[in-house]
Design a protein around this nucleic acid. Structure first.
Lengths: 334, 334
DNA sequence: GTGAAAGCGCTAACAA
DNA sequence: TTGTTAGCGCTTTCAC
């Protein structure tokens, strides 16, 4: 049978309370007693039952993480940062994804109602935001990783869409590129929208407004990149650069540019956002606005941990800076 | 304050035991009583405390998953399969990774000792196998996702390294390619070793043994692919195909082939294993031995769930079939 | 400094 | 069918 605190107490000749005190460092304990207890703990290989501890203490030492899906490279990167940070703060981590829509979310919500964890980290809440906000209102500490603004109860960690897009735009301008194609996101508010808006602002300010015909819809897939270039080419559009909202669409763009016989970067320079996956492995390697995804995850986890520790949390959103990684898709190496 | 079973019992005019019976469907309960209890449960919005339930029942309803890291695309895919499957079997999922080595593992082991979960799924145990085996020996239900054989206590789910490599080899032979370069794995037993061995066996059987000079070391990175091709080219090696052990190294191979002026697939056909990430987005798109990673994860999770339900588990390893996805890197479209 | 006792919120025998 | 009574294994007052 499992070794319990009672076994330890008996063998050490003390009460359970004393064992608990020694193990948790609460209250004063005689040095000799403490040493004896610790010896017995080691002898017996005693480890407190997580179940019993959490019931008695009223907290689990576990945090929940709700992510859209793990298969998108950038999310996996963020998750890794979260995992590492949670591990070092000594928290367990329960993972939930929303790949199966409402059903997934209901199951997740059930665990919230059952108080299965002490705090919650949500990556890209999107349409679940109202429900998550309700959880926060009910007293659950919540931290968000999102580019959208959120309610007042929830700290938000974001990466700089606007400043990152500005970096990309300025890089292209510095290279003398004045006619970019821009790949937007799906309809509705979206991080891609913000990126594109910031990007075109910079071009406009520089005296090179981006025409409506140069905007193409995107959905973060390689296919959307292929379609955009193919259409632009068919329309006979003049362009010397392409700004993509993520790695995947940029890969599609590269494929199609090659297909229609435009060389990169000579004829067309390509820049993308994220840098989460294989940007260094495309042909040519992609210049990218690098989002420090692991840092973003780690930072959000740190904030949640300090919220749980009662150390206080930031009241405004934290923005993690992006940086531009220049590769061959914009500048051919010497 | 939180609503407890006592509140429900009081309000419904029954004992806590009856409420518990109604909620868990155990034992006979009067239909009218049950209905009344359920109404009160709904009125009060009562949800049993996960902490209390797990202490009383002696199990948590949670399974642990130990993965090497989330940042490798194939692992993220497998994880998604695991998450989906665990969700549908009603289990919670505690995630652990081994990115920080011994320290990570110690933390994980601590949770095991604390009985924080009922069962364990390990992805690529590698050097932790002995420790994991000990956990299984101590009574923890364990399922492995691994290409290496494991102890008798742990069911293993694998994908067909040998049959997959055979598919790749036969495909190249059918295309008339007789001089492949092969990219191996790091030293020691490794899935790449098995893939390469099977691949070269097929060529040998067909009368085209692969020479020692055609073997290059690899480590799953794009860089190793670049290096291999660059060396082969410098050596003046004759080759008309390259077999890579994963997507990333294949991307490096494509980059370097272009760099040295060999066209794909005309001069050199390229095939890789995994198909976990961006294979459709390279230039040209990569022909790949597709591993159904989500299925692998889901299957392993299913086995673990049935082990926890006491439904019995397979006593031998399960192999999930791969299939060859032909793209432009071996066959130029018409 | 330490022990006794009362919970934490539920489940599961055993009676009734 | 239902209630009573013990736990599950720990933490935490409150006395001593």
């Amino acid at each position: 049978m499992r070794v319990t605190i009672a076994h330890v107490a008996l063998r050490a000749g003390v009460s359970k309370a004393t064992v608990s005190r020694v193990l948790n460092g609460k209250g004063e304990t005689d040095a000799a007693t403490a040493a004896r207890v610790r010896r017995v703990v080691k002898e017996l290989g005693y480890v407190p039952s997580a179940r019993a501890v959490s019931l008695a203490r009223g907290r689990t030492g576990v945090v929940g993480v709700l992510a859209p899906a793990l298969t998108r490279p950038w999310i996996a990167q963020v998750m890794q940062g979260v995992v590492d940070s949670m591990e070092s703060s000594g928290h367990g981590l329960m993972l939930f994804t929303r790949t199966r829509g409402d059903d997934s979310f209901r199951r997740f919500a059930g665990q919230v109602d059952a108080n299965a964890f002490d705090g919650l980290l949500v990556i890209e809440p999107e349409e679940t935001l109202p429900a998550v906000d309700r959880m926060a209102a009910a007293g659950l500490p919540v931290v968000l990783i999102s580019d959208r603004p959120a309610g007042p109860r929830m700290p938000v960690v974001a990466s700089g869409n606007r400043s990152g897009a500005r970096q990309a735009a300025e890089h292209l301008l510095a290279l003398g590129r004045h006619r970019p194609l821009v790949l937007g996101g799906p309809d509705g508010y979206d991080c891609a929208t913000e990126r594109v808006a910031s990007f075109t602002d910079v071009f406009a300010e520089a005296g090179f407004p981006v025409s409506a015909e140069a905007h193409f819809p995107g959905d973060y897939t390689g296919e959307s990149g292929r379609v955009a270039v193919s259409r632009a080419d068919a329309d006979g559009a003049q362009f010397d650069a392409v700004f993509c909202h993520n790695d995947l669409s940029a890969s599609g763009v590269l494929q199609m540019l090659e297909h229609v016989g435009r060389s990169v970067p000579e004829d067309v320079a390509v820049v993308c956002f994220d840098d989460a996956g294989h940007t260094a492995l495309t042909a040519p390697p992609l210049t990218a606005v690098h989002r420090p995804l692991r840092d973003i995850g780690a930072e959000a986890a740190r904030i949640l941990a300090s919220a749980l520790a009662g150390t206080g949390v930031p009241d405004k959103s934290i923005e993690i800076a992006t940086d531009l990684v220049v590769r061959d898709s914009t500048v051919r190496p010497a």
